[in-house]
Write a protein that binds this DNA or RNA. Sequence first.
RNA 1: CGGGGCGUAGCGCAGUCUGGUAGCGCGUUCGGUUCGGGACCGAAAGGUCGGAGGUUCAAAUCCUCUCGCCCCGACCA
Length: 501
Amino acid sequence: MADKGGKSAITPREQDYPQWYQDVIREADLAEPAKVVKGCMVIKPYGYAIWEKIQRNLDGRFKDTGHVNAYFPLLVPQSFITKEAEHVEGFAPELAVVTHAGGEQLEEPYVIRPTSETIIGHFFAKWISSHRDLPMLVNQWANVMRWELRTRMFLRTTEFLWQEGHTAHASHAEAREEVERMLHVYGDFARDVMAMPVIRGIKTDSERFAGAVETWCIEAMMQDGKALQAGTSHDLGQNFGKAFDVKYQTEEGVLDYVWQTSWGVSTRLVGGVIMAHSDDGGLVLPPQLAPIHVAIIPIYKSDEQRESVMAAANALKERLSAIDISPPRARWRDFITVEIDDRDLRPGAKFYHWERRGVPIRIELGPKDLEKGQVCVKMRIPTAAGEGKEFLATDAFIDGVQARLATYQSELLRLAQARQEAKTIHLDTWDEFLKTFEGDSSLFAWCHWDGTAQTEAEIKAATKVTIRCVPLPGQGPEPEPGVCIKSGKPSKQRVLMAKAY
RNA sequence: CGGGGCGUAGCGCAGUCUGGUAGCGCGUUCGGUUCGGGACCGAAAGGUCGGAGGUUCAAAUCCUCUCGCCCCGACCA
């Protein structure tokens, strides 16, 4: 592990935010660039454990809303991609194509899926014939590949893991309910599990998914004020239904095309959770996603001490590991995960080790504690759940540990919300706008916009700022008429502007 | 694809200009002393210097070609 002179190997955020992000990932042992495969990453066990927790939780939410899992091929016939005009245009530049297999050139190349609307459309056409087959509510957990020109670990890699929900409905209204429902599944998950506040809204035409009628999204603010598109939910209208001939017989007996949706979140969420909470000491994780909740550091000198301290540490681990911290109505059980660090290192080195990895609770357990029947507790960051070293009676600590984790979780959300609010402003003049977004700086700005793609493009060209979304009701300022910050033309409401990842 | 940078031990780098036995820090291994906030001492292992060709008595170093990666722009979950 890289170590700069025995001190922190993590670049402070103030000094170089992107470097800080890379350092946190390396020092927490979450992932590393694959190097031998351009733009790809290796997700290491500790990083993958976070993804597994994200998966498990979301998967339960999808099933709670009536969806079932399925799996479709990685390779998609090239001709499929070209069937929906906007879809090709959007994805053609970033496709990886398989032209040879089995030592022969293929008659028709396959593309490695960048997303699966096309091949799933093909199968929906086979599976759906009647309104009785609808709605069809399918999700797949998969990897996809997009040949991005610029990559960043977790946030944008050539290959990434995600889930993609694909549904077909008998009416546009029903499909739109689905789009909204799933957006809120994402938004609630971000808030309640990731402790990451998000703005829920609708994309402008230029930011819309290629082939969609409308794209709904959640946008999160990272600590540098930039926005991260954390999840999307698309109203596909009948676009793919028409392209893949997905027709069904209505109750009245006439043929119509189905109304489809698709929605997805990816391993980008891991990048989001890293940036939402971590500090210059490394990773900070919300307990609901932390692979390890408690690290116990045994303290001893002699062999006799080691024996008694380790016995106490194991007993403590056993008691903590029996505590069920599953969310209400979860389809799975989650228990407090405890790691006893008995490596032959000095305690100080171990403290830093677990802090870099974002373990919420650290316990020091030494001979003095055994005598007094207490534990020394230190939380990863100071919150209402506790700060500094606390010396607590062992039983009292165990009785309160679940509440302690819950408080820590909600405090992370509160802190993230406070950061977001501090960096969210209203802007009304182009001069202020330029000043605000000068150089590399960014924050969330609610601004009036005339609703034209041209103005949007001009703003982006001048400042790299994009319209992140038009907020859903309650997600931004109350709609009130005004004038566009750039063109001065009339505007119906403020939209969210920021630089994005 | 345009602009810039870099490939030397597991990681981070020096050495290249001016050719002459391949080095440093961290990490690793072994032994000992340590141990409630990043320990110290001693010993050891570990490299066909990205690849190919050329110049030379001699190439990490000079020349030609090539491969790859990173950063900055245009594209994006």
